[in-house]
């Protein structure tokens, strides 16, 4: 490697920005480490801070195919790893029965029949009948891929155990066929919303990145990148307002994705200035619980005034 790690991390930051993903140094470092060490990376953080998007952008940046596996309760190996083509297998056994006659024709005695049967090529469990699912697909992909295992916390603990072999050795054991090893190791990204504690065994095999809510500066950059139409003063006010809301005690805090949605809404409404009425009318874009909306409604005047004040201060500077 001729380039120092610092340069590569900078390149990643720039490359990601080109695809509309503004990442902090921490995120860029994590991506660098994941590709350098060839280790899976587990991303945690509140919903809507761009965990899934990170994998998407990584796929674009590294110019690799993106393979996504959405986890849910009850997900098992037949949907995640591989499956046999049962219909075809059943047909095969039917054909086999007919063919058997030909194979055994003229054989004398039990022993000879058995010998012939043994020589007969059996393809019941073979590649031909193997249906690949996302995980196996990611391993067999020739050009390498970015494998996103989304919301791994939603899956059962059994599935987690299933992932261990893939994540540490980049291989899958198929009992009938043996071990399939990846030629080109995929970049694996796992995301979790922490709805349940992920097992230590899984955590140990991964790098761990925690993405918190962004600070005002980063969030402004993100809004700028995602909604470039927005005026600068409006963008500052929106971000300040959202940052203010995050200080409150709410059921679900608005994340970056909500800020972006809100910015788009404001553009759609052709508003130039953030005021109490606009905030109140569009609050449901930002907050997803009626209780939260009630709480924030009371605080709107204070939030709006502080948001516009600080933005005035900034623009004077």
């Amino acid at each position: 490697m001729t380039d120092g790690p610092k340069k590569i991390i900078k390149d990643i930051t720039k490359g990601f920005a080109k695809h509309g993903y503004i990442c902090s140094e921490q995120i860029a470092t994590a991506v660098y480490l994941a590709s350098e060490l060839e280790k899976p990376i587990l991303i945690e953080g509140p919903p809507g801070v761009g965990k899934t998007e990170l994998a998407n952008t990584a796929a674009l940046y590294f110019k690799k195919e993106m393979i996504r596996l959405q986890c849910y309760e009850g997900l098992d190996e037949s949907k995640a790893l591989y499956e046999w083509r049962y219909g075809k297998q059943l047909l095969y056994t039917q054909i086999l029965k007919e063919q058997m006659q030909e194979v055994l024709e003229g054989a004398k005695g039990l022993k000879e029949s058995l010998d012939r049967l043994m020589k007969f090529e059996d393809i019941f469990f073979s590649e031909d009948f193997l249906e690949t699912r996302p995980l196996l697909e990611a391993l067999t992909s020739e050009k390498g891929s970015v494998l996103l295992i989304d919301e791994v916390d939603k899956s059962d603990e059994e599935f987690e155990a299933l992932l261990l072999e893939i994540l540490s050795e980049f291989q899958i054991s198929i009992p009938e066929l043996g071990v399939r090893k990846a030629d080109v190791k995929p970049l694996v990204v796992l995301t979790s919303n922490n709805s349940r504690e992920i097992g230590d065994a899984l955590k140990r095999r991964c790098l761990h990145l925690y993405i918190p809510f962004p600070d005002a500066k980063l969030e402004r950059q993100i809004v700028q990148a995602r909604v470039p139409e927005i005026s600068e003063s409006m963008q500052i006010q929106l971000v300040n307002f959202v940052q203010g809301i995050r200080e409150l005690d709410l059921k679900k805090l608005p994340a970056i994705s909500e800020t972006i949605d809100w910015a788009k809404t404001v553009i759609l409404l052709n508003s130039e200035e953030l005021d109490a009425k606009l905030a109140e009318d569009t609050l449901n874009v930002l907050l997803k619980h009626q209780q939260d909306i009630e709480v924030v409604k009371k605080e709107i005047p204070a939030l709006v005034s502080s948001a516009t004040e600080t933005s005035d201060g900034k623009s004077l500077n």
């Binding site: 994590a30 480490l33 990376i41 587990l42 945690e44 918190p212």
Partner: peptide, 18 residues
Amino acid sequence: EDKELLKRTLSIVLSKTP
């Protein structure tokens, strides 16, 4: 050499919860 970089890196590798 770079203390900040070292901190970020080790934080990713060694600590696994917020």
